[in-house]
Design a protein around this nucleic acid. Structure first.
Lengths: 230, 230
DNA sequence: GCTTCTATGACAATCGAATGACACTTGTGT
DNA sequence: ACACAAGTGTCATTCGATTGTCATAGAAGC
């Protein structure tokens, strides 16, 4: 069963972009351009998550958010605020109002998708794939457990996120910079080479004995989780 | 066998919300918009629990409640009153009338579900999972007793709820924030780290001697009750 | 062989969790 | 009303786990 996403946004371009990409990810997408329409869409069926533009003509996103939280039917629906740069200071206010997360425009699709999935995993785990598998490696995001050939492995937080990130798109090569952004976050300043060290630690952790290494080093480019890994 | 819930409520939105969520929880849901219809539904088959709106057009919820209590077929059916904010003062009158519990709108679904389950557990224990077991730990939600290897343990209220919550989904990792929401309630503002303290107290209470610890700390993520705990 | 890029062990700094102490509330029995 | 016991939320401290860098060794490319 696909998760239903309601996008409340007044920019037609952005709506189309989101609809296209979210549907490609398997979400059922509803859209609304203002508070009124949003109300109608919600009445038609409770969405599983709401993307809400901060600034909207008429009733502002923050006000909509407040109202959604006040109504019992929608009090627990996860909400992600879409805020424009420069409104970041409002962040605290936004979260205080009841939004569960926020992204700053212009945002990257992968980032938005990651946040949507993270929230859904928390509120409706059954809507999201919680287990990633490849070969004899298995990672369960609900229980935070990683197994290889059935045997449980212990990974530090960073190694865990790194593996999760790499396994998200097996075969795809990520540059060190991409890994830093995706795993460490865009706001931290860490040396590129640190990635090497953590890849090394991850390898040591997931390759006990002399099991084959699923992580491929691409000289001059970065790393990838081998899609053909068995 | 699923428990039958009768919802007596005149707001169509709320009815839909309740039907949707209660059915998702495995209840068989009947609805009625007024006293007359409620009578028909009850005649069709005795519900295991009734959710009753306080204010209804025509015969008020409180009056319906009184009548249900007067008839012997329905005298013992648990009733939860749905009251709007501001009617709280009426609480005592409501309970005196015979309702077993009440929730104030807007209520959170988890809270309502918890109360429904609590009442059913009292009236029809066989309809509800009453005992949670894992390894040699056993918690009886009817009596609020906790045993380890047959020996009874003493837990404070918060520790009890914490354990109950964690054991509800063994293996699942809950963040401190989730635990605060689920165990303390969404409206309390308590420091994240307080969870640590209570986890510590819970551990001390359920691990007498040097018995193994079923609670797993997931660094950077939260805690979980070990699903593989033996 | 020389250059460039990656792997790895060592290490100090930092972080997160566990724990004991303590002040405050709440509830109960007298 | 009062005293007492139980239960709670914060804090400061402690301690092991984790992290980011660096220096050095090892591979790969040309």
């Amino acid at each position: 069963m696909n998760a239903r996403v309601l996008v409340v946004e007044d920019e037609a371009d952005l709506i189309e972009l989101l609809r296209y990409n979210l549907e490609a990810e398997g979400f059922a997408v509803d859209t609304a351009e203002d508070a009124e329409e949003a109300g109608v869409r919600i009445a038609e069926g409770r969405p599983d998550i709401i993307l809400l533009d901060w600034m909207l003509p008429g009733t502002s996103g923050i006000e909509i958010c407040r109202r959604l939280r006040a109504r019992e039917e929608t009090a627990t629906v996860p909400i992600i605020m879409l805020t424009a740069r420069g409104e970041e200071e409002e962040r605290v206010r936004g979260l205080a109002t009841g939004a569960d997360d926020y992204v700053v425009k212009p945002f990257s699709l992968p980032e938005l998708l990651a946040r949507i999935n993270a929230l859904l995993r928390r509120s409706n785990p059954h809507l999201v794939a919680t287990v990633l598998k490849a070969g004899d490696i298995e990672i369960d995001r609900t229980t935070h457990r990683v197994r290889r050939a059935g045997r449980e492995l212990h990974l530090g937080p960073t190694e865990y996120r790194l593996l999760e990130y790499l396994m998200g798109h097996p075969g795809r090569v990520y540059s060190r910079e991409q890994l830093l952004d995706g795993v460490w976050g865009t706001d931290v300043y860490v040396d590129d080479r640190t990635v090497d060290v953590h890849i090394g630690r991850l390898r040591k952790a997931i390759n006990p004995g002399r099991s084959s290494d699923p992580i491929r080093t691409v000289r001059g480019a970065g790393y990838s989780f081998d899609e053909k890994f068995k």
